[in-house]
Design a protein around this nucleic acid. Structure first.
Lengths: 253, 253
DNA sequence: AGCAAGTTTTGATCTATATCATGAAGCCAC
DNA sequence: GTGGCTTCATGATATAGATCAAAACTTGCT
């Protein structure tokens, strides 16, 4: 079982963990040869699970590693001048957190578990060394970072140009696509984050998020039961975010 | 003279162009040995200047190169579902544009000159090959991308949490710092972009940008004469953006 | 189970900023 | 230099979404 809740910290096991991990098709190992996956596997530390609310790394802390989420969900945020928290992203299984720490050798954000979460720790200096031996891993890493840059730019479009309905619809479709990519239902899922966190992330007040969702439910676009969301009318939702061009993109992470 | 307005397209010259470029301390060559700079130099094509309004690359176009701005200014934007342009960034000399194209092998944004602009074209496949031979170049590239990720996240904070005054102040201080880093005055500079473009970028209406600037002038924070801006009261401006922590960061690109 | 603390929903009101409208000032082409 | 076009400034008005308030629900704790 590649995703266990209490994996050993080191992995000198019979078989490669990455190789068996159901996420390897989405995570860094993508397009690596078996022997290369083993090499990657050897630098990865699998840590004990984080409980809800626990912190993976702090804003300002020295950077050594990037982390791949295996199970659960993380949020990243930074604390603004006025002391409020501004959420900059949510991370689902197979997604890589911490890349923004490379530049300055310290994390510019804090990463916190929204629920019980397991991660693979990838010491960056090892990873970087390994990219010298495995060009496709290097390319993969450039791609992951490039993707992050374009996703964040789509997020800037969302924050700068969209109204509350479009923001919430984009958010839900984005999650839907991420779940789908991982083999879960695209139309029925559970939000790991509170309404407040959604609002914070989207630049909206809690009350607005709540009202928009209620209205979406009335209009039979979605069905809401607490944190459980079902998308009833996918095509109408897509119309809302303007699926035509770039927004297809943001909904397709 | 390393920055000329009509450099030859190829560079089999006596001396390395990168080596002589006054931007090399800010651009990719940072921390490269002389011989490595020469190797980097050999893959770079110096293109004819773009005139105001000319396009460097189009959204959707196949990705081959990243570009370093040598002189002038670029903006990048994408066209939203509703057909409007959303500006995602402005690029000054020494800054690298096009990194977001790596992921998908096509540029997700359009890059357009705001004034006469010269760029160095760096074919990405060559650059990537070169990183195999020059580990510090690879590291440098990771850093540049990482920096872009954290800068964009600061931009998300700006768009999601700041009011009009804070947005405009952050924008001006950000430019100020970028000019300063290049050896220009930090307190007196010319905006290459129109009020409309500033507003588009910051998620504000043109009128709001205009009003905020007028008010800043009345309050003797800045002096405005068309596109010429002087920052009169730097510390007050810094207070406005909340220089305390993270915002120091965004003002320090 | 039962109580306290947090979260979500819903309603009423307020406000920052968008939008609309107009005139002034720059800027380019001929 | 003059006419036409774009950008900028400023006033008047409208509105999306914030804020305030309070009730209904969840969740976790002993």
């Amino acid at each position: 079982m590649s995703i266990s809740t209490a994996p050993s910290r080191f992995n000198s096991k019979l078989t490669s963990q990455c190789q068996n991990c159901s996420l390897s098709a989405l995570c860094l190992p993508i397009a690596l040869a078996d022997e290369d996956i083993n090499r990657l596997d050897q630098i990865i530390e699998r840590k004990r699970p984080l409980k809800k609310g626990e912190i993976l790394f702090h804003q300002g802390q020295a950077f050594d590693s990037v982390f791949a989420v295996r199970t659960g969900t993380l949020k990243t945020f930074n604390i603004t001048a006025s002391g409020e928290e501004q959420i900059t992203g949510f991370y689902c299984p197979s997604e890589l957190v911490g890349l923004s720490g490379i530049d300055n050798n310290s994390y510019p954000i804090t990463a916190k578990a929204l629920e019980t979460t397991t991660v693979c720790e990838i010491p960056f200096s090892h990873l970087e060394n390994l990219t010298s031996q495995i060009p496709s891993l290097k390319h993969q890493l450039f791609r992951v970072m490039s993707r992050k840059i374009s996703d964040d730019q789509q997020m800037m479009v969302l924050l700068g140009k969209k109204n509350a309905d479009e923001k919430v619809a984009s958010f839900l479709l984005n999650l839907s696509n991420r779940f789908k990519k991982r083999g879960y239902s695209a139309t029925s899922f559970r939000l790991a984050m509170s309404r407040g966190e959604v609002g914070n992330y989207l630049g909206l007040a809690v009350e607005t998020v709540s009202r928009v969702m209620t209205r979406f439910q009335k209009n039979e676009l979605i069905e809401v039961d607490g944190k459980e969301i079902s998308i009833i009318n996918l095509s109408e939702m897509q119309k809302l975010v303007g699926i035509a061009d770039d927004c297809a993109r943001i909904a397709d992470i």
